[in-house]
Design a protein around this nucleic acid. Structure first.
Lengths: 342, 342
DNA sequence: AATAGTATTGCAAATGTTTTCATAAATTGA
DNA sequence: TCAATTTATGAAAACATTTGCAATACTATT
């Protein structure tokens, strides 16, 4: 503890303490097999003693990787993204990467700025949510030629690698479930669909199924809800107090569905007897509401985990051929949906 | 678009294109007032044309700041942390910082590893949750002398700067509310309290109030629940099906409280008539359950926001005197608590 | 014992930037 | 018009590493 020069310990300080050259210290970290075990021991001791911590910034200047992966999400504070982020983070951590994160609040111009910001830090790869991005963003990605990944959306024609689920199909499955139960008077509560391919695809899928079943959904039964339980609850309340109200509601995601469920309970409607509620996503907690939420399971944890592990290897490998992974959906019928009684 | 040397555009490439020296380009970025407006314009054009993006890694090698702040949380995937992280991220972003994030799953040895990892990236500051950390962690922080912040816990004797609320008081407030309503048969569901000063303090505060009201809580009315709705629901179910069951439950946080509420509904108990449920935290969504959750409001968004903005200035300033901010709590009575009817 | 490898190490150049110092050009004041 | 400032720019050193190359020491083979 003699020379505790707080903070200013670099590789040459270690080298001096171990009486070797800086190169040897460097090698001892990066190619341990190239240095004599005895020397390595001396170096390790010096490192311990001085409290040396490698400087990745300096490393990355050498064409070496920075060891970071950037992730840009619409928002962190939402059940679904929180789960994906967690899984993604764990997966890349396992491969030695660190996560740089930024959010844009569903504003694609801010997304562009965030991406630039992360690029300044020379992330080794950049993961985004979905495939809806501005033209500038795509241009930037191509120009800077940073490995990029789309999480959450699977599209077999995507211009960049993707790991996700088929949202069109998710919408269809949810709709089919309702139709299969004999429902025809159905409301639709979705988030805004511009700039959000996930929500858009789901809605398209659902409407497609309804149309081919000869069901039409009036405009006033299609309110738009932002991503919050409170507002979804309010929207549902409005919808349910119309003169004519639907007997079933298909929600763009489980957060909205939870809001809808609470709204129904609020005005004393029996779910599912008086009203069926269908979600999409199967978020954490959806299984536990009373009654449990019927939904289409999108395996967020698995998507995040696969995205993380595959992207890590993609980034470290030379091969730039793009890859696409599709995660399977499944219908989860719980207590909020039932066949129409009449 | 003539010389689109994808990716390998550095400051001297820009300098050449603009026919000035690298120094001037650098200055034009960092001290624009020192360079002739005309030259600046030339440089800007070259930057645009080549698609140049600054390299913060190279910058930070100069004793310059890295422009990153590290955040280590127990988990990202939890209502409460998601909200803090979001607010913190937004606040530091506004000051030009980027967030490096890592989680440790309530394992303090992993926390140590994560902190080291972030230090390798030379974060300008490091924010942690709470004040419970290993001895090694504290030693590392001091030795490396990285500005550190504790979020979420306020302690007027904390060894490092902190921004948060008084958890002891939160526990007391929740307990007092129940006692004030005449409850004496009270169960307590908390997460594990070792390595978690927030939960521990709350529980201590609550028990303190009960004790001075002459209320004792039997061991079997104090199950331990991890941070998940599903498991909290199960624990509550177990608790409520004992021969003797409490008339009120105080939950260590709102996630547990939601689980408890669903459990009660599951077995047909009327809340609050048959059972009062009290939470702590006031998470997003707590206001919207049916009935709405009574709880102690801890302003997570505000804490994250204050933590972020104060820490940003702390990190950039020379002054290393430590600061402490306490955010106020408030009792929010909604529908899950009522006075005992007997 | 001499030769050919092989294992281990150090030197120096390179990485992309910022900053100090020096120089040149332009402006001001007399 | 000349000296004294002021303004604008460039050259070179510095930052903390990695790595190619060369040098040395050691080992095995004949």
């Amino acid at each position: 503890m003699d020379i505790k020069q707080r903070g200013k310990v670099d590789i040459v300080a270690v080298a001096n303490a171990a009486k070797v050259s800086a190169s040897t210290v460097s090698r001892s970290f990066n190619h341990p097999d190239l240095v004599n075990p005895a020397t390595r021991k001396k170096i390790d001791r010096a490192v311990k003693k001085l409290g040396y911590i490698r400087n990745r910034a300096a490393q990355s200047m050498h064409g070496r990787r920075s060891g970071t992966i950037g992730l840009v999400v619409p928002t962190i504070n939402h059940a679904i993204f929180a789960e994906v982020i967690q899984a993604f983070s764990d997966a890349i951590d396992q491969e030695g990467f660190t996560l740089l994160i930024a959010s844009h609040g569903y504003d694609l111009d801010r997304e562009y700025e965030m991406i630039r910001k992360l690029m300044e830090h020379r992330v080794d790869g950049l993961a985004l949510i979905g495939l809806d991005h501005t033209r500038e963003t795509y241009r930037l990605l191509e120009q800077q030629d940073v490995p990029t990944l789309a999480i959450w959306t699977h599209d077999q024609d995507s211009p960049i690698p993707c790991v996700g689920a088929d949202n069109l199909e998710a919408g269809r499955m949810a709709a089919r479930h309702l139709v299969g139960l004999g429902h025809r008077e159905i409301g639709l509560i979705f988030p805004a669909t511009q700039n959000n391919d996930r929500a858009r695809q789901r809605k398209i899928g659902a409407l497609e199924v309804f149309q081919s079943a000869g069901i039409s959904v009036p405009e006033e039964w299609q309110p738009e809800a932002p991503y919050s339980i409170a507002q979804a609850k309010q929207m549902t309340l409005d919808l349910l107090t119309l003169d004519q109200r639907p007997k079933a509601i298909l929600c763009g995601n489980d957060v909205i569905a939870q809001g809808a469920l609470f709204a129904a309970q609020r005005i004393g409607l029996q779910v599912p007897q008086d009203l069926s509620i269908m979600g999409i996503g199967d978020f954490k907690g959806s299984a536990d509401t009373e009654p449990g939420l019927s939904t289409v399971r999108i395996p967020a944890g698995r998507i995040g985990q696969m995205a993380g592990s595959h992207f890590s290897s993609y980034v470290t490998s030379e091969d730039r051929g793009l890859f696409r992974f599709k995660c399977n959906l499944s219908l989860v019928q719980r207590g909020t949906t039932a066949s129409v009684t009449r």
